[in-house]
Design a protein around this nucleic acid. Sequence first.
DNA 1: GACACTCAAAGTGCATGCAATTGAGGCGCA
DNA 2: TGCGCCTCAATTGCATGCACTTTGAGTGTC
Lengths: 252, 252
Amino acid sequence: MAPRPASKTAVPSDKAGVICRALRRAIIEQALAPGAKLPEDSLGERFGVSRTIARHALGQLAAEGLVELRRNRIAVVATPSWQEARDAFDIRIELERLVVRQLAGKLTKAQIAELNAHVDAEDRARDGSDAVSIRLATEFHILLANMTNSPILVRYVSEVAYRCCLTLSLYSRPHSSECAINEHRAIIAALVKGDEAKVMSLMHSHLDSVASRALVAPAPPRGRDLLDILAPYAEEGESERVVKLPKMVRAR
Amino acid sequence: MAPRPASKTAVPSDKAGVICRALRRAIIEQALAPGAKLPEDSLGERFGVSRTIARHALGQLAAEGLVELRRNRIAVVATPSWQEARDAFDIRIELERLVVRQLAGKLTKAQIAELNAHVDAEDRARDGSDAVSIRLATEFHILLANMTNSPILVRYVSEVAYRCCLTLSLYSRPHSSECAINEHRAIIAALVKGDEAKVMSLMHSHLDSVASRALVAPAPPRGRDLLDILAPYAEEGESERVVKLPKMVRAR
DNA sequence: GACACTCAAAGTGCATGCAATTGAGGCGCA
DNA sequence: TGCGCCTCAATTGCATGCACTTTGAGTGTC
């Protein structure tokens, strides 16, 4: 396949993009835990812009599924359910198989070097915080997606990878990243060798093992609030926030 | 798999959502052709809201890839390249295989009836405009995705299906929808029967045939403007709008 | 007649202001 | 003490205003 022109950045404005990236990173590094509040004016003040821009950034992140926007309420970092996490991983597996299928045997020397450098960085970060390790592992996959030069694929893989990253912070036991790094190296090797079937199965089992290590139990382990725990007992899902614990049915 | 609670609407505000849906529909029905201008204040005036809201809606649609936002310039309906269209279809195939895999043999009677009713509607619309046929065909796939009750999957399938719909208006020869309708019926039948392998291959070949009927030629066939046609001849892609026809290099 | 330059009109980028909604603490009452 | 109501600060929803950028039509020059 002929090399395509590099994708132009899809970022619409500018300042909002900065805030987006900052928040995204804070979220996936767990500096902002799921459920954390994100008031528009605090954000605006922190980044030196008006609420308008902060609001715009929150809208973007909501579209990506990283924050939840509820009408007239403070935006919060998303708290995906266990099932949503499972779904995200399922989608991610398919998308990333597509990535490596397109890439097998087509990497340039420079790209191979870039990938190896990234895994080396993952290696060096192994002693640091788990959060950084997780972020780097995620970014390895995004780096791969970028090499397809397919803007749509990049966007979807990035989004779903960030979502998965977010769920890791909710449902994962303390992360041991060593094996993931080895698997990354194996994927690079298979890509270079050009063995399409091999690399697809490697990627599949890699993500599958990450998912199964991460999504250990369907029960919400921590950081969930009462309403979420009680949700399965609610009568009808559509009313959203029916119970209040001792008394209830505060219908309106 | 146990039935999950219905997905809550991800629409952040409200009025912006209305505009989004209206524009989305206008775009996929080709009332708004690729390249059509979408000035914020015209939009706001048309829908009785301020520019702020119109802008927000445009931001959403840009995130979905249906409109293009360029700094300080009027937003336009997106004009995907042929390669992007190809990529979108590739992704779509994988995602929809996921959909039918989850659905095979698990449809309720009500869902089966709903699907059949939709295909009947497609049938009735066969004499109408091509645009409506295409929209209905697209909505069949979104209807399927909805039945997975996986909000993430629904969102991605919807987005990518709309994008494909948009490319159809750019690259497709006049659409004959009859075969698509039959294929939809076959997919329903296989889903009901619960034959997972069969339904996945049906969906694959269905989308593949749509894609190959649609993406007939890599050359932009119609409705493109001079600049796009000349784009392959430009020296460096990053400068964006270098030529002006007789004289050029209006660098700034 | 074609090119270059100028300038006003149109449009976006962003901040701010006002109204409406929320939810949390305080107060009264049993 | 416990429960419910009420009020008010905090926060969002949205419109508007000002500054800056782009556009393209008109004008002058060769």
